[in-house]
Each structure stands twice: as C-alpha cells, then as structure tokens.
C-alpha cells in the first residue's frame, strides 16, 4: 500500500510516500539497504516487498510483455544484490533503483533491434497495444467494473503515449519520484519532464472522460 502526497499548486513536490516515509514501518529504504549490505537478509526482504510491485509494473507497462518484465525485474534486483557493498546512501534508494531499471530497459530495447524503441528520450515514439492486465480487487461490484474499465483504458492509452512521456508518468506514479528526481535521472531539464507529464496525463485523462 502506498500513498500519494501532492502539495497544492506545486507539482514538482508531488511524491509517493512509502510506509517508511510515513514512519509506520520505522525504517527508510536507505537504512534497509545499508542493513542488507552489512549482512541483514531480512532487511532486503522488507525492501523488496516494498518495491517489487512498482518495479515490476514499470517494466510491464513499458514492454507490455510479462516474460520480458519478469526477466528485466529479476535482472535489476540481482544488480541491487550485487551492488550492495557499493551502495552509498547519498540519494534516495528509489532514485538509485530506477536508475538501474531505466538502464536495463534501454539495454533491453537496444538488444531487440526490431523494436521501435531505442531511447527513452524520444518524445515521438509510440508503443504497441497493451495486453490488458487484471485490475485490483474492489469491494463494490459496480466500482470493480468501473475500475476494470478504467484500468483497461488507462493501460491502452498509455501504450499510445510516446515512450519518454510514458517513462516520466511511470517514474512518477509507480516509483513515486518527484519532477526534479525524474529530470535528474533522465538527464533533462525539469521543464522537459513537466511537459512530458502534462502530455501523458492529458492523454490518460481523455481515455477516462466518458467514465466520469
């Protein structure tokens, strides 16, 4: 379970808050990673449980391929394991994790030369249709139907969004990174990320219009 904290009028401070951030778990991602580097395997288990869904969905939404998502997700977390002793808590763990994820995704696309995607910086690319994943559980049957429809539409709409915009959206909504963090990770100005997010949200909002 994650929470979104959005400050009024300032999108660049929008940030997904993990239970650790709220203090309910008592341990930050960084302290868990450092504990794991010192030999605490249970710290890694807690860290993985906290982030496995978002990283998996990041790859799944980018590739629309469960097999590829499985492989990329596993590769990135094995890199985390391998890099445990080199990890320095200078930045947020999430930023470091998604830097690894993004590099792995670019390598994946480069290896598949037939793919249309070779860069996450190209705002003009579009992706193949989504395969439509199951929505989350819902107590209300009507809400379940609406959520399922919304989920399908959002996923389908996201596949039609250029890769760079989709990447900015996923890093924001799944990884919980701020505009500044996404800009630093992508190596572009914050205004560029802001523009990419604005276009991505416009497309997704349009996909939901007749459901609201």
């Amino acid at each position: 379970m994650t929470y979104i904290a959005v400050s009024a009028g300032r999108a660049d401070t929008a940030r997904r808050m993990t239970p650790a951030d709220t203090g309910s778990a008592g341990e930050s991602d960084e302290s868990l990673m450092l504990a794991y580097a010192r030999g605490d395997a249970t710290a890694f288990e807690r860290l993985y449980a906290r982030h496995k869904g978002p990283t998996y969905r990041y790859f799944l939404r980018h590739t629309s391929d469960r097999g590829a998502a499985d492989e990329l997700h596993q590769d990135v977390w094995l890199k985390v394991v391998a890099a445990r002793e080199r990890y320095v808590a200078e930045a947020r763990f999430t930023t470091w994790l998604y830097t690894l994820a993004r590099h792995r995704l670019v390598d994946h696309w480069r290896a598949r030369r037939g793919s249309r995607f070779t860069s996450l910086d190209d705002d003009g690319d579009a992706e193949r249709p989504a395969d439509g994943d199951a929505p989350a559980n819902h107590a209300d049957p009507l809400g379940l139907v609406i959520d399922a429809q919304a989920g399908h539409r959002l996923q389908r709409a996201l596949t039609e969004v250029p890769a760079a915009q989709r990447d900015a959206f996923l890093l924001h909504v799944e990884a919980g990174l701020s505009l500044g963090e996404i800009a630093a990770l992508a190596g572009v100005p914050a205004e560029t990320i802001k523009s990419r997010l604005r276009y991505a949200y416009r497309r997704l909002r349009a996909a939901l219009e007749d459901l609201q």
């Binding site: 994650t2 959005v6 999108a11 799944l60 994943d133 199951a134």
Partner: peptide, 16 residues
C-alpha cells in the same frame, strides 16, 4: 503536470 484522479484510477487498476 499531474492529475490526482488519474493517479488514483491507475493505482486501483494496476496491481500486478
């Protein structure tokens, strides 16, 4: 740049 309603709909739908 962002839309909380889209984020909420996304999170309800995306649980893989």
């Amino acid at each position: 740049a962002t839309d909380a309603s889209v984020d909420a709909a996304w999170r309800r739908a995306a649980g893989e």
